[in-house]
Simulated scan of single mutants.
Amino acid sequence: MIAHLVFDGVSDGSLGVGLEVMGAAARLARAGRIAAHVSERVFRQRVVSMAGQSVRTGTGRTFAVDGPLTVRELRQGDVLVLPGLGAATEDQLDALLAREDIQRGLGMLARLARKRVTLAASCSATFLLAAAGVLEGRQATTTWWLGPAFARRFPRVSLRSDKMVVDAGDVLTAGAALAHADLMLGIVARTAGVSLAHQVAKFLVLDERTSQARYMVTEHIRSSDPTVLALEAFVLANVGRQLSLHHMARATATSPRTLVRRVQSTLGTTPFRMAQRLRISRAVHLLETTNESVEQIAARVGYADPAAFRRIFRRETGAAPLAVRRGAGVARRGEPQRAREAAARFAQEAAATPKRRTGS
Protein backbone atom coordinates (compact mmCIF):
# COMPACT_ATOMS: atom_id res chain seq x y z
CA MET A 1 0.00 0.00 0.00
CA ILE A 2 1.07 3.55 -0.68
CA ALA A 3 0.07 6.15 1.91
CA HIS A 4 0.60 9.80 1.05
CA LEU A 5 1.03 11.81 4.26
CA VAL A 6 -0.03 15.42 3.78
CA PHE A 7 0.24 18.48 5.98
CA ASP A 8 -1.02 22.03 5.55
CA GLY A 9 1.06 23.62 2.79
CA VAL A 10 1.53 20.40 0.81
CA SER A 11 2.60 20.93 -2.79
CA ASP A 12 -0.40 20.45 -5.08
CA GLY A 13 1.82 19.32 -7.93
CA SER A 14 3.80 16.78 -5.92
CA LEU A 15 0.70 15.22 -4.41
CA GLY A 16 -1.06 15.10 -7.76
CA VAL A 17 1.84 13.55 -9.62
CA GLY A 18 2.34 10.99 -6.84
CA LEU A 19 -1.26 9.83 -7.13
CA GLU A 20 -1.15 9.83 -10.94
CA VAL A 21 2.09 7.82 -11.24
CA MET A 22 0.81 5.09 -8.93
CA GLY A 23 -2.62 5.21 -10.57
CA ALA A 24 -1.06 4.72 -14.01
CA ALA A 25 0.98 1.80 -12.67
CA ALA A 26 -2.21 0.17 -11.39
CA ARG A 27 -4.02 0.67 -14.70
CA LEU A 28 -1.15 -0.79 -16.72
CA ALA A 29 -0.78 -3.74 -14.36
CA ARG A 30 -4.50 -4.54 -14.52
CA ALA A 31 -4.29 -4.37 -18.31
CA GLY A 32 -1.79 -7.23 -18.22
CA ARG A 33 1.32 -5.17 -19.01
CA ILE A 34 3.49 -7.01 -16.47
CA ALA A 35 4.37 -10.69 -16.57
CA ALA A 36 4.81 -11.40 -12.87
CA HIS A 37 1.91 -11.43 -10.41
CA VAL A 38 1.88 -8.39 -8.14
CA SER A 39 -0.43 -8.17 -5.14
CA GLU A 40 -3.29 -5.72 -5.52
CA ARG A 41 -2.25 -4.23 -2.17
CA VAL A 42 0.83 -2.77 -3.88
CA PHE A 43 -1.38 -0.42 -5.92
CA ARG A 44 -3.76 0.57 -3.14
CA GLN A 45 -3.43 4.29 -2.31
CA ARG A 46 -4.59 6.38 0.61
CA VAL A 47 -4.08 10.05 1.39
CA VAL A 48 -3.78 10.61 5.13
CA SER A 49 -3.15 13.48 7.52
CA MET A 50 -2.11 13.39 11.16
CA ALA A 51 -5.62 13.97 12.52
CA GLY A 52 -7.60 12.69 9.54
CA GLN A 53 -8.82 16.19 8.74
CA SER A 54 -8.68 18.08 5.45
CA VAL A 55 -5.56 20.12 4.74
CA ARG A 56 -4.93 23.38 2.93
CA THR A 57 -2.56 22.90 0.01
CA GLY A 58 0.20 25.28 -1.00
CA THR A 59 -2.17 27.07 -3.36
CA GLY A 60 -4.81 27.48 -0.65
CA ARG A 61 -7.15 24.72 -1.81
CA THR A 62 -8.93 22.43 0.65
CA PHE A 63 -7.99 18.79 0.14
CA ALA A 64 -10.05 16.03 1.78
CA VAL A 65 -8.09 13.00 2.99
CA ASP A 66 -9.06 9.36 3.47
CA GLY A 67 -8.38 9.34 7.18
CA PRO A 68 -5.69 9.67 9.85
CA LEU A 69 -2.23 8.16 9.75
CA THR A 70 -2.09 5.08 12.01
CA VAL A 71 0.87 2.82 12.67
CA ARG A 72 -1.16 -0.41 12.62
CA GLU A 73 -2.51 0.31 9.13
CA LEU A 74 0.94 0.08 7.54
CA ARG A 75 3.20 -2.95 7.51
CA GLN A 76 6.59 -3.97 6.19
CA GLY A 77 6.61 -3.57 2.40
CA ASP A 78 4.19 -0.64 2.45
CA VAL A 79 5.39 2.86 1.57
CA LEU A 80 4.68 6.16 3.31
CA VAL A 81 5.29 9.09 0.95
CA LEU A 82 5.72 12.72 2.01
CA PRO A 83 5.20 15.23 -0.83
CA GLY A 84 7.04 18.56 -0.64
CA LEU A 85 5.79 21.26 1.72
CA GLY A 86 6.74 24.46 -0.07
CA ALA A 87 9.40 25.70 2.36
CA ALA A 88 11.87 27.64 0.20
CA THR A 89 14.00 29.42 2.82
CA GLU A 90 15.62 28.54 6.13
CA ASP A 91 13.18 30.76 8.03
CA GLN A 92 10.30 28.86 6.46
CA LEU A 93 11.98 25.57 7.37
CA ASP A 94 12.34 26.70 10.99
CA ALA A 95 8.64 27.58 11.12
CA LEU A 96 7.71 24.29 9.45
CA LEU A 97 9.70 22.08 11.82
CA ALA A 98 8.37 23.95 14.87
CA ARG A 99 4.73 23.22 14.02
CA GLU A 100 2.88 20.94 16.45
CA ASP A 101 1.47 18.69 13.72
CA ILE A 102 4.93 18.30 12.17
CA GLN A 103 6.44 17.41 15.56
CA ARG A 104 3.83 14.68 16.03
CA GLY A 105 4.57 13.50 12.51
CA LEU A 106 8.28 13.14 13.28
CA GLY A 107 7.52 10.74 16.12
CA MET A 108 5.24 8.73 13.84
CA LEU A 109 7.94 8.53 11.16
CA ALA A 110 10.44 7.11 13.65
CA ARG A 111 7.92 4.47 14.76
CA LEU A 112 7.14 3.45 11.19
CA ALA A 113 10.85 3.18 10.40
CA ARG A 114 11.25 0.73 13.28
CA LYS A 115 8.36 -1.25 11.79
CA ARG A 116 10.30 -1.43 8.47
CA VAL A 117 7.77 0.59 6.53
CA THR A 118 9.54 2.24 3.59
CA LEU A 119 9.66 6.03 3.94
CA ALA A 120 9.97 8.40 0.98
CA ALA A 121 10.03 12.19 0.67
CA SER A 122 10.82 14.90 -1.84
CA CYS A 123 11.83 18.55 -1.73
CA SER A 124 11.50 20.22 1.70
CA ALA A 125 9.76 17.13 3.14
CA THR A 126 13.17 15.43 3.18
CA PHE A 127 13.95 17.66 6.17
CA LEU A 128 11.21 15.84 8.09
CA LEU A 129 12.85 12.47 7.48
CA ALA A 130 16.19 13.87 8.61
CA ALA A 131 14.68 15.54 11.69
CA ALA A 132 13.01 12.23 12.62
CA GLY A 133 16.48 10.63 12.67
CA VAL A 134 15.74 8.03 10.00
CA LEU A 135 18.45 9.31 7.63
CA GLU A 136 21.41 9.24 10.02
CA GLY A 137 24.36 7.35 8.57
CA ARG A 138 22.66 7.14 5.18
CA GLN A 139 22.88 8.95 1.88
CA ALA A 140 20.09 11.34 0.95
CA THR A 141 19.25 14.16 -1.41
CA THR A 142 17.07 17.25 -1.12
CA THR A 143 16.01 20.14 -3.28
CA TRP A 144 19.21 21.66 -4.63
CA TRP A 145 18.80 25.21 -3.31
CA LEU A 146 18.31 23.95 0.27
CA GLY A 147 21.30 21.61 0.13
CA PRO A 148 23.62 23.86 2.21
CA ALA A 149 20.97 24.25 4.93
CA PHE A 150 20.43 20.48 4.98
CA ALA A 151 24.16 19.80 5.27
CA ARG A 152 24.53 22.20 8.20
CA ARG A 153 21.53 20.86 10.10
CA PHE A 154 22.15 17.17 9.55
CA PRO A 155 25.92 16.55 9.38
CA ARG A 156 25.45 12.80 10.05
CA VAL A 157 23.56 12.42 6.76
CA SER A 158 25.66 11.98 3.61
CA LEU A 159 24.10 14.57 1.33
CA ARG A 160 24.04 13.97 -2.44
CA SER A 161 22.26 17.12 -3.54
CA ASP A 162 23.32 16.51 -7.16
CA LYS A 163 21.17 13.37 -7.32
CA MET A 164 17.53 13.43 -8.35
CA VAL A 165 16.66 10.36 -6.23
CA VAL A 166 18.69 8.51 -3.60
CA ASP A 167 17.63 5.00 -2.58
CA ALA A 168 19.03 4.25 0.88
CA GLY A 169 17.27 0.98 1.53
CA ASP A 170 14.17 1.61 3.60
CA VAL A 171 14.31 5.35 2.94
CA LEU A 172 14.11 7.16 -0.41
CA THR A 173 14.63 10.87 -0.95
CA ALA A 174 14.19 13.09 -4.00
CA GLY A 175 15.15 16.61 -5.01
CA ALA A 176 13.03 19.60 -6.05
CA ALA A 177 9.24 19.44 -6.13
CA LEU A 178 8.74 17.82 -9.55
CA ALA A 179 11.43 15.26 -8.76
CA HIS A 180 8.48 13.68 -6.92
CA ALA A 181 7.68 12.00 -10.24
CA ASP A 182 11.13 10.39 -10.24
CA LEU A 183 10.62 9.35 -6.62
CA MET A 184 7.31 7.67 -7.43
CA LEU A 185 8.81 5.86 -10.43
CA GLY A 186 11.46 4.52 -8.06
CA ILE A 187 8.73 3.29 -5.74
CA VAL A 188 6.94 1.59 -8.65
CA ALA A 189 10.22 -0.09 -9.65
CA ARG A 190 10.76 -1.30 -6.09
CA THR A 191 7.24 -2.57 -5.43
CA ALA A 192 6.09 -3.77 -8.86
CA GLY A 193 9.22 -4.09 -10.99
CA VAL A 194 11.53 -2.00 -13.16
CA SER A 195 9.69 -2.95 -16.35
CA LEU A 196 6.43 -1.46 -15.11
CA ALA A 197 8.23 1.70 -13.97
CA HIS A 198 9.61 2.16 -17.50
CA GLN A 199 6.16 1.63 -18.98
CA VAL A 200 4.65 4.20 -16.62
CA ALA A 201 7.36 6.70 -17.58
CA LYS A 202 6.55 6.22 -21.26
CA PHE A 203 2.79 6.28 -20.65
CA LEU A 204 3.02 9.61 -18.79
CA VAL A 205 5.82 10.98 -21.02
CA LEU A 206 8.21 11.35 -18.09
CA ASP A 207 11.87 11.66 -19.06
CA GLU A 208 14.45 9.71 -17.08
CA ARG A 209 16.61 12.10 -15.07
CA THR A 210 19.33 10.94 -12.69
CA SER A 211 20.70 14.31 -11.67
CA GLN A 212 19.46 17.74 -10.62
CA ALA A 213 22.98 19.16 -10.74
CA ARG A 214 22.30 20.96 -14.03
CA TYR A 215 19.71 23.06 -12.20
CA MET A 216 22.11 24.04 -9.41
CA VAL A 217 22.68 27.58 -10.65
CA THR A 218 25.57 29.17 -8.80
CA GLU A 219 23.66 32.29 -7.82
CA HIS A 220 21.18 30.22 -5.83
CA ILE A 221 23.81 28.54 -3.64
CA ARG A 222 25.66 31.69 -2.74
CA SER A 223 26.58 31.87 0.90
CA SER A 224 27.17 34.73 3.29
CA ASP A 225 30.38 33.03 4.41
CA PRO A 226 33.20 35.37 3.27
CA THR A 227 35.62 32.45 2.78
CA VAL A 228 33.24 30.66 0.43
CA LEU A 229 32.52 33.87 -1.47
CA ALA A 230 36.25 34.54 -1.82
CA LEU A 231 36.79 30.99 -3.11
CA GLU A 232 34.00 31.38 -5.64
CA ALA A 233 35.47 34.64 -6.93
CA PHE A 234 38.94 33.10 -7.17
CA VAL A 235 37.75 30.02 -9.06
CA LEU A 236 35.69 32.06 -11.52
CA ALA A 237 38.63 34.39 -12.16
CA ASN A 238 40.82 31.36 -12.87
CA VAL A 239 38.27 29.05 -14.43
CA GLY A 240 40.70 27.91 -17.13
CA ARG A 241 43.41 26.83 -14.66
CA GLN A 242 43.93 23.66 -12.69
CA LEU A 243 43.79 24.74 -9.04
CA SER A 244 45.23 22.83 -6.11
CA LEU A 245 43.85 22.95 -2.60
CA HIS A 246 46.90 25.01 -1.58
CA HIS A 247 46.14 27.53 -4.36
CA MET A 248 42.58 27.86 -3.13
CA ALA A 249 43.58 28.12 0.53
CA ARG A 250 46.18 30.81 -0.21
CA ALA A 251 43.62 32.82 -2.23
CA THR A 252 41.14 32.73 0.66
CA ALA A 253 43.74 33.41 3.40
CA THR A 254 43.00 30.13 5.17
CA SER A 255 44.74 26.84 5.77
CA PRO A 256 43.72 23.89 3.56
CA ARG A 257 42.08 22.20 6.56
CA THR A 258 40.09 25.31 7.45
CA LEU A 259 38.98 25.80 3.87
CA VAL A 260 37.76 22.22 3.63
CA ARG A 261 35.82 22.60 6.88
CA ARG A 262 34.24 25.94 5.89
CA VAL A 263 33.10 24.77 2.46
CA GLN A 264 31.77 21.49 3.85
CA SER A 265 29.78 23.18 6.61
CA THR A 266 28.40 25.86 4.28
CA LEU A 267 27.72 23.97 1.04
CA GLY A 268 27.94 20.32 2.05
CA THR A 269 30.71 19.60 -0.46
CA THR A 270 34.48 19.91 -0.93
CA PRO A 271 36.47 22.83 -2.38
CA PHE A 272 37.41 20.66 -5.38
CA ARG A 273 33.79 19.72 -6.06
CA MET A 274 32.69 23.33 -5.65
CA ALA A 275 35.36 24.44 -8.14
CA GLN A 276 34.33 21.69 -10.53
CA ARG A 277 30.69 22.73 -10.41
CA LEU A 278 31.62 26.34 -11.06
CA ARG A 279 33.64 25.28 -14.10
CA ILE A 280 30.81 23.08 -15.38
CA SER A 281 28.34 25.91 -14.74
CA ARG A 282 30.50 28.17 -16.93
CA ALA A 283 30.60 25.44 -19.58
CA VAL A 284 26.79 25.19 -19.55
CA HIS A 285 26.58 28.94 -20.08
CA LEU A 286 28.99 28.78 -23.03
CA LEU A 287 27.11 25.85 -24.58
CA GLU A 288 23.84 27.76 -24.32
CA THR A 289 25.12 31.11 -25.59
CA THR A 290 27.94 30.43 -28.08
CA ASN A 291 28.68 28.30 -31.12
CA GLU A 292 32.06 27.15 -29.82
CA SER A 293 32.80 23.44 -30.10
CA VAL A 294 32.77 21.16 -27.07
CA GLU A 295 36.55 20.88 -27.36
CA GLN A 296 36.97 24.66 -27.30
CA ILE A 297 34.68 25.04 -24.32
CA ALA A 298 36.45 22.23 -22.46
CA ALA A 299 39.74 24.06 -22.87
CA ARG A 300 38.21 27.37 -21.77
CA VAL A 301 37.05 25.87 -18.47
CA GLY A 302 40.30 24.10 -17.71
CA TYR A 303 39.95 20.61 -19.21
CA ALA A 304 42.76 19.67 -21.58
CA ASP A 305 41.17 16.28 -22.26
CA PRO A 306 37.75 16.65 -23.98
CA ALA A 307 36.85 13.04 -23.12
CA ALA A 308 37.41 13.71 -19.41
CA PHE A 309 35.38 16.91 -19.72
CA ARG A 310 32.46 15.04 -21.30
CA ARG A 311 32.57 12.40 -18.59
CA ILE A 312 32.61 14.95 -15.75
CA PHE A 313 30.00 17.12 -17.49
CA ARG A 314 27.61 14.18 -17.74
CA ARG A 315 28.21 13.21 -14.11
CA GLU A 316 27.52 16.75 -12.89
CA THR A 317 24.57 17.61 -15.14
CA GLY A 318 23.06 14.26 -16.04
CA ALA A 319 23.32 15.08 -19.76
CA ALA A 320 25.90 15.23 -22.54
CA PRO A 321 27.22 18.66 -23.59
CA LEU A 322 25.53 18.54 -26.99
CA ALA A 323 22.22 17.55 -25.39
CA VAL A 324 22.39 20.70 -23.27
CA ARG A 325 23.15 22.73 -26.36
CA ARG A 326 20.23 21.23 -28.27
CA GLY A 327 17.95 21.87 -25.33
CA ALA A 328 18.94 25.54 -25.39
CA GLY A 329 18.24 25.75 -29.12
CA VAL A 330 21.75 26.97 -30.00
CA ALA A 331 22.70 26.29 -33.62
CA ARG A 332 26.23 25.29 -34.49
CA ARG A 333 28.28 27.59 -36.74
CA GLY A 334 27.02 27.41 -40.32
CA GLU A 335 23.58 26.05 -39.47
CA PRO A 336 21.75 29.39 -39.83
CA GLN A 337 23.32 29.88 -43.28
CA ARG A 338 22.36 26.34 -44.32
CA ALA A 339 18.83 26.94 -43.11
CA ARG A 340 18.58 30.16 -45.15
CA GLU A 341 19.95 28.39 -48.25
CA ALA A 342 17.44 25.54 -47.85
CA ALA A 343 14.59 28.02 -47.46
CA ALA A 344 15.71 29.88 -50.60
CA ARG A 345 15.87 26.61 -52.59
CA PHE A 346 12.40 25.66 -51.38
CA ALA A 347 11.01 29.06 -52.43
CA GLN A 348 12.64 28.79 -55.87
CA GLU A 349 11.31 25.26 -56.39
CA ALA A 350 7.85 26.31 -55.28
CA ALA A 351 7.87 29.24 -57.71
CA ALA A 352 9.05 27.05 -60.58
CA THR A 353 6.44 24.34 -60.00
CA PRO A 354 3.38 24.81 -62.23
CA LYS A 355 0.32 25.43 -60.14
CA ARG A 356 -2.35 22.84 -60.61
CA ARG A 357 -5.50 24.35 -61.98
CA THR A 358 -8.64 23.58 -60.11
CA GLY A 359 -12.08 23.45 -61.49
CA SER A 360 -15.05 25.16 -59.92
Rank of each mutant, 00 (worst) to 15 (best):
V79G: 00
G52E: 05
R61T: 12
P354R: 09
L286P: 01
Q199H: 11
R333C: 09
T142A: 11
H180Q: 15
R222S: 10
Q337K: 13
A197Y: 04
L287K: 00
V81D: 02
R241L: 13
L69G: 01
A177H: 05
T258Y: 02
V21C: 08
G133I: 07
R99N: 07
R325L: 00
A339W: 08
R257N: 08
R222Q: 13
D78F: 14
P354H: 09
P83L: 03
F346G: 09
M184D: 08
P83I: 04
E316P: 01
R332S: 08
S122K: 02
R300N: 10
A132W: 01
F154G: 01
A51Q: 12
A308M: 09
Q76V: 10
A347K: 14
E208I: 03
Q92T: 06
A140Q: 09
T191R: 15
A237Q: 14
G147Q: 06
V235Y: 04
K115Y: 02
L278T: 06
V166G: 03
A275H: 01
W144C: 06
R261V: 09
P306Y: 00
A140I: 02
R209E: 02
V79E: 00
Q92L: 13
R315T: 09
A253S: 13
A151K: 04
I34P: 00
L267Y: 00
Q276N: 12
L15V: 07
A213V: 00
Q212D: 08
F234M: 06
P256F: 09
K115A: 15
C123W: 02
A307M: 05
G133Y: 07
V239N: 12
E349A: 13
L322A: 12
T173N: 06
P83S: 08
L229R: 12
A121W: 00
A343W: 05
V235A: 06
L159E: 01
V301N: 00
V330I: 07
Q139N: 11
R262S: 10
S224W: 14
R56S: 05
R116K: 15
M22T: 08
W145Y: 14
E40I: 04
E295Y: 06
R357C: 06
A25V: 10
G193N: 12
T317D: 02
Q103F: 01
S14I: 04
T210C: 02
R332W: 10
G334T: 11
Q348S: 10
T191G: 05
R156V: 05
S224T: 08
A176L: 05
Q45H: 11
L322Y: 03
V38D: 05
V301Y: 00
S265E: 09
L19G: 15
L159S: 01
T57C: 10
R138L: 15
